[in-house]
Amino acid sequence: MLKLSLIGIGCGDPAYLTGKAIDAINAADLILIPRKGEEKSDLADLRRQICADVLTNEATRMVEFDLPVRDSARENYRAGVDDWHDAVAASWSREIDKHLGKDGRVALLIWGDPSLYDSSLRIARRLESLPTIEVIPGITAIQALCAAHALSLNEIGEAFLVTTGRRLREGGWPDGVDTVVVMLDGGTAFEALEPEGIHIWWGAYLGMADEIIHSGALADVGATIVAARRAARERHGWIMDCYILKRGSV
C-alpha cells in the first residue's frame, strides 16, 4: 500500500524542523526533492541539507526531479493553476512509479506548512494511484514573520484575515478586519493602498541566512521595502516574502 507523507519543514531554518518531521523523514522509503530551476536552487539545497542533517535510515532513497513550470501568462488564473496542478501530479506519479511502485512510503518536504497557501494536498489528491496521505505540520511563514518582529498577530478579541497580494490589489482592504496578513504577493500590492494610518511588518527569506525584515508606518517605510525587495530579487533571482498590515494605533 502506498503512503504519501507531506512533511512541513518550516520556512528556511533547519532548526524549525519538528521531532515528528524527523521521524517521518526517516520512515520514508523514498524522498522526492523537486527542482524549480537554477533561480530557486536554494530551495532544493535546503531540502538536501535537512536530509543530510537528520536522515539516518540508510535504506531511504532520495530522488530529485524537475517540476513543471506554471504558465503565469494565462488569462484565466484558476484554469492555469488547475492545469499546472495536473502536470505536477503527473510528474509525482511518474517518479513514484519509477522509483517505488505501488507499495511503500514516499515523502515530500513542504516549505512552511502543507495546510497554508500550499498546493501539495490538492496535488496529492490528483495522483493516478491515490495513496494514504499523512500530513506533518510545520512552522508557517506567518509564525516566522511574527517571531522575527516580536509581534502579536491578533489584537485582543479581534479577528485577522490571511489573503493574497492579488486579492489585496484587486479588492483593496478587506471589510471587517483591521489586521491583514498578505502572502503570495508577486509584487508589492500594499502600494495600491492609501498608506495613512497603516503599519506594515515585512519579511523576506524568513528563517534563512539572508533574512530581511522591515517595519514601520507604511507611509514611511513602503518605499524602503519596495527597494529592498527589488534588490534582493535581483541578487538571488527569486524572492519569498510576506507581510502584515494593521490599521489604527499600534
Score class of each variant (00 low, 15 high):
Met240His: 02
Gly12Glu: 15
Ser152Pro: 15
Ile212Thr: 06
Ile136Thr: 06
Ala147Gln: 11
Leu108Asp: 10
Ala87Gln: 13
Leu2Cys: 09
Ser129Leu: 11
Leu145Tyr: 03
Asp83Phe: 02
Glu158Asp: 15
Val69Gln: 14
Gly165Met: 06
Ala209Tyr: 04
His85Val: 03
Val106Arg: 10
Asp118Ile: 05
Gly216Val: 04
Thr163His: 04
Arg229Ala: 07
Cys242Phe: 00
Ile7Ser: 02
Val162Lys: 03
Lys36Gln: 10
Ile25Phe: 01
Ile50Val: 08
Ala107Phe: 01
Arg78Tyr: 07
Phe190Ile: 00
Val106Thr: 05
Asp185Tyr: 00
Gln143Met: 13
Asn26Met: 05
Lys246His: 02
Tyr117Gly: 14
Ala124Val: 10
Ser152Thr: 13
Leu168Trp: 03
Ala159Met: 13
Arg229Asn: 05
Ala87Tyr: 00
Asp210Ser: 09
Arg105Gly: 04
Asp241Thr: 02
Pro137Ile: 04
Gly186Gln: 11
Val181Gly: 06
Arg167Asp: 13
Gly8His: 03
Trp202Phe: 04
Arg169Val: 13
Ile198Gln: 06
Asp86Pro: 09
Gly101Ser: 08
His236Met: 15
Thr132Leu: 15
Leu116Glu: 08
Ile133Glu: 15
Gly171Met: 09
Leu67Asp: 13
Gly237Gln: 09
Arg74Glu: 12
Glu191Trp: 03
Trp201Gln: 03
Ser119Thr: 10
Arg167Thr: 08
Lys246Asp: 09
Tyr243Leu: 08
Leu108Lys: 01
Ala232Met: 14
Ser129Cys: 13
Val221Lys: 05
Val81Leu: 15
Lys3Phe: 01
Met208Leu: 11
Ile25Tyr: 02
Leu4Tyr: 00
Ala147Met: 08
Leu108Ser: 07
Gly37Thr: 07
Leu17Asp: 02
Leu168Arg: 03
Leu55Asp: 02
Ser5His: 08
His149Leu: 11
Glu194Pro: 12
Glu158Arg: 10
Tyr16Val: 00
Leu245Tyr: 02
Leu100Ser: 03
Ser72Glu: 15
Gly12Val: 11
Pro34Ser: 11
His236Ile: 01
Asp82Pro: 14
Arg122Tyr: 06
Gly207Lys: 05
Thr179Phe: 04
Lys102Ser: 14
Ala223Ile: 04
Ala148Val: 01
Gly176Leu: 09
Glu158Phe: 01
Glu155Trp: 00
Leu245Arg: 00
Ile225Tyr: 05
Leu32Tyr: 03
Leu218Ile: 04
Ala231His: 13
Tyr243Ala: 05
Arg61Gln: 15
Glu194Tyr: 00
Glu128Pro: 15
Glu194Asn: 10
Lys98Cys: 13
Tyr117Val: 06
Tyr243Glu: 12
Gly216Leu: 10
Leu2Asp: 12
Val181Arg: 05
Val81Lys: 11
Thr163Val: 10
Val182Leu: 10
Ser91Thr: 14
Ala28Glu: 07
Ile7Tyr: 06
Leu193Arg: 02
Ala217Ile: 02
Gly197Met: 06
His214Arg: 13
Val180Cys: 14
Leu46Phe: 01
Pro14Glu: 15
Asn76Gln: 13
Glu194Cys: 07
Ile33His: 03
Ala27Glu: 15
Cys11Thr: 14
Asn26His: 09
Ser215Gly: 05
Trp201Val: 01
Gly186Met: 13
